[in-house]
Design a protein around this nucleic acid. Structure first.
Length: 279
DNA sequence: ATGCCATGCTCCGCATGA
C-alpha cells in the first residue's frame, strides 16, 4: 500500500497539476493539505473518476485537509480533540488542520492528515497557537498508540527538525519552523514511539520537500524538509520505502511543496522489516 | 531591512504563507 502526503496550496488552482501527478503516481491513499476551499467546492468528482473515495475537512480561503483512498474509508475524525478555547485568539479552534480515517484494506491502517500551524511571526499569538496545537496532536497520538494498531500521521508539520533539513539553516534562525520549541515538540512526538519514514528509509541529506516561490529558491535548491510520515510501531514493521517526488516541483503551476510517498507491506502477516533483516 | 511569488477574497489592496 502506497500512502502519499502533499500540501497542494489550493486544490482548485492546482487541479490539472494534481490530477496529472495522481494519474502517474497512482498511490492507494493521498493526504492533501491546504486545499483552501470549503467542502462544497472541493472537486471530488475529478478524484472519484480516478477511483478514489474522498473525505474532506475544508475551510474558506485558508487551510483545509482531505484524505483520498482507493479502499473504503470509515471512522472519520475532523479536527483534533481539545478544540475548546484552543484557537489563536482564545476562542474555540475552528481551523481545518486535521482529518483522520480508517483505511479499510485487508489489513486496516488508520491515516491522519496534518497541516500544522506555521507559527510565524514568533512573538505573536500565532507561535503559542502552533505549540498548543502540537500538544493536542501529541496527546492524540498517545491515544492512538494505545490501540496498538498500524497508523500513519502524515502531512505538513511546518517544522525543520534538524539543520540538515535545510539548505541554508542560518536563514531559518528566528523562524517559527526552526525554533527550539517547535523542534522539541516534533521530537517529543517521535519519542512517544513513532518512526519517521525518512529515517527508516535513510533518505540522503538534501532531500527537501518545500521550496519557496520567491527568490529563485527552487533553481538554487534552497529547500527545507517539512513534510513527514510518522509511523506507529505496527506500521513501521511493514515499512518498505519512501520516495520524495521532487520532479513535481517542475510541473506547470507547481505547488511549493512536493509529494512524499511511503510503501507499506500489506501482507496479512508482515515479514520482518529491512532493518531487522540486516541486524 | 525589504521584496522577491502565489493564493483567495473584501477583489485593483489585503491577509497569509514558510
Amino acid at each position: 500500500m502506497r500512502i502519499a502526503t502533499w500540501n497542494v496550496n489550493s486544490v482548485n488552482a492546482r487541479l490539472p497539476t494534481v490530477l496529472a501527478w495522481l494519474e502517474a503516481a497512482a498511490p492507494d491513499v493521498v493526504c492533501f493539505q491546504e486545499i483552501k476551499t470549503i467542502d462544497e467546492k472541493f472537486p471530488r468528482e475529478a478524484f472519484e473518476r480516478l477511483g478514489y473515495n474522498v473525505e474532506t475537512h475544508g475551510q474558506k480561503t485558508y487551510n483545509g485537509v482531505a484524505i483520498l483512498s482507493k479502499f473504503p474509508l470509515s471512522d472519520i475524525r475532523r479536527g483534533l480533540p481539545g478544540a475548546e478555547g484552543a484557537g489563536p485568539d482564545g476562542a474555540d479552534d475552528d481551523q481545518a488542520r486535521y482529518i483522520e480515517a480508517l483505511i479499510e484494506a485487508p489489513v486496516p491502517v488508520r491515516v491522519g492528515a496534518i497541516y500544522l500551524p506555521n507559527g510565524n511571526p514568533v512573538g505573536t499569538g500565532k507561535f503559542p497557537y502552533k505549540l498548543a496545537w502540537f500538544d493536542r496532536l501529541n496527546a492524540h497520538a498517545r491515544d492512538l498508540l494505545a490501540l496498538e494498531e498500524p497508523f500513519v500521521l502524515c502531512g505538513d508539520y511546518n517544522v525543520i527538525p534538524e539543520a540538515v533539513d535545510a539548505k541554508n539553516p542560518a536563514d531559518w534562525v528566528g523562524d517559527a519552523l526552526f525554533q527550539p520549541e517547535s523542534r522539541a515538540a516534533f521530537k517529543a512526538l517521535k519519542w512517544l514511539g513513532l518512526s519517521e519514514a525518512g529515517e527508516l528509509g535513510e533518505q540522503p541529506p538534501g532531500t527537501y520537500t518545500f521550496w519557496d516561490y520567491q527568490a529563485g529558491a527552487w533553481q538554487r535548491n534552497n529547500g527545507i524538509r517539512i513534510d513527514f510520515h510518522l509511523l506507529s510501531p505496527q506500521a513501521a514493521d511493514r515499512f518498505r520505502g519512501v520516495e520524495t517526488h521532487r520532479d513535481a516541483r517542475d510541473m506547470d503551476k507547481p505547488s511549493d511543496h512536493v509529494p512524499v510517498v511511503i510503501e507499506l507491506d500489506m501482507e496479512e502477516v508482515a515479514a520482518p522489516s529491512a532493518s531487522l533483516r540486516a541486524a
